[in-house]
């Protein structure tokens, strides 16, 4: 139901824009139908009322996503840290902005962020628009200014025309809206796991099936936080990762001021998790094998360590089974625009 109202509001807004414009033909922009891959049907996309998905906007956002002009010296695009082939991560422990400046956290995947209500590892952004806006001006990311951004994009006629038609003008905010719209279309499902759940018993081998049972068991508690079709509860927990470093990342406490949330980070999705190494908010675990070993030993001791994280005493075979299950979460990718 909800998407429908969103689109109605969008249509209305666009009509208002156009009637206020310079007398161009009035038409309702072609809306973009977000194709939800099999396995994710139960999830509710989060699309802001003031930034509905339209075909033109997604196309524009995709072009912007790969455009280095968003950064100070036109060398860094969103795709520098969110590389599609690496599951929209960057393969680095912590990500890198212009001039090789390093941020303090691992670039999280963008997959299925349309289903998330808060963004960033510490949840400090309420929308993807906020994320894009922050990245464009953050000193260690794109290091740009809104003014420079506008003057860099304006000479490109494709942009000036598209922005005029879709938003009325090029501005940091509208750039963020377009990019956020594109990022909302990056969805992944239709994995062997989803096909198995849909009744195709051949989709998972025995090891992966044993891994799935382990994953969902009370023995491991994995599914308590990595819950639901997107394998995340979108909540903040501590598994102790990075807490043994000399200056641990405070994480969620910076947003809430609540000391019990020190060292907590948002549960990431496990969709396409094989592509997104290294793992954890600090990229401290190089492989899935390391991740399983990490949880098997009960994470890293910390006052706010989640009650779900405890030594698991998994056999070597059980660890392999879990990894094989995680491998089965690799989506078909056919739902992402431009991926074909």
């Amino acid at each position: 139901m909800r998407p429908v109202t969103v689109f109605c509001a969008a249509g209305l807004l666009m009509v208002l824009f156009y009637s206020a414009g310079c007398g161009k033909k009035e038409s309702v922009p072609k809306q973009f139908t977000l194709a939800i891959p099999p396995g994710l049907e139960q999830l509710e996309p989060v699309i802001p009322v003031d930034n509905p998905l339209t075909q033109a906007k997604v196309v524009l956002g995709r072009k912007l996503f790969f455009d280095e002009r968003l950064s100070l010296d036109a060398t860094v695009s969103c795709a520098t840290c969110h590389i599609p082939l690496l599951g929209y991560g960057d393969g680095r422990t912590t990500s890198m902005g212009v001039y090789g400046l390093r941020s303090t956290r691992n670039a999280p995947t963008l997959i299925n962020r349309v289903f998330g209500k808060t963004q960033f590892w510490d949840g400090r952004a309420a929308s993807l628009e906020e994320v894009v806006l922050e990245h464009m001006v953050a000193a260690n990311d794109m290091r740009n200014t809104p003014e420079r951004l506008v003057s860099a994009l304006t000479p490109d006629e494709t942009y000036s025309q598209a922005f005029t038609e879709i938003f009325g003008a090029i501005a940091a905010e509208t750039v963020a809206q377009a990019v956020a719209a594109y990022v909302r279309t990056i969805v992944s499902g239709d994995s062997p796991y989803d096909r198995f759940m849909a009744g195709n018993t051949d989709a998972l081998d025995e090891s992966a099936q044993r891994g799935m049972a382990l994953f969902n068991s009370e023995r491991t508690n994995c599914a308590t936080c990595h819950a639901g079709p997107n394998f995340t509860d979108e909540q903040f927990h501590s598994n102790g990762a990075g807490m043994d470093s000399p200056s641990p990342d405070p994480g969620r406490v910076t947003q809430t001021g609540n000391e019990s949330e020190r060292g907590r980070f948002k549960t990431p999705t496990l969709r396409d998790v094989t592509r997104t190494a290294p793992y954890m908010h600090d990229g401290s675990l190089r492989s899935l094998k390391d991740v399983i070993r990490f949880y098997n030993q009960g994470g890293i001791a910390h006052p706010n360590l989640s009650a779900q994280v405890k030594p698991l005493h998994l056999s070597t075979q059980e660890q392999t089974d879990l990894i094989n299950f995680l491998r089965s979460l690799r989506g078909s990718n056919s739902f992402q625009p431009g991926s074909s």
């Binding site: 790969f66 795709a79 082939l85």
Partner: peptide, 8 residues
């Protein structure tokens, strides 16, 4: 070390 990616 990383794949280069620029769709255009």
């Amino acid at each position: 070390p990383n794949p280069l990616y620029n769709a255009d």
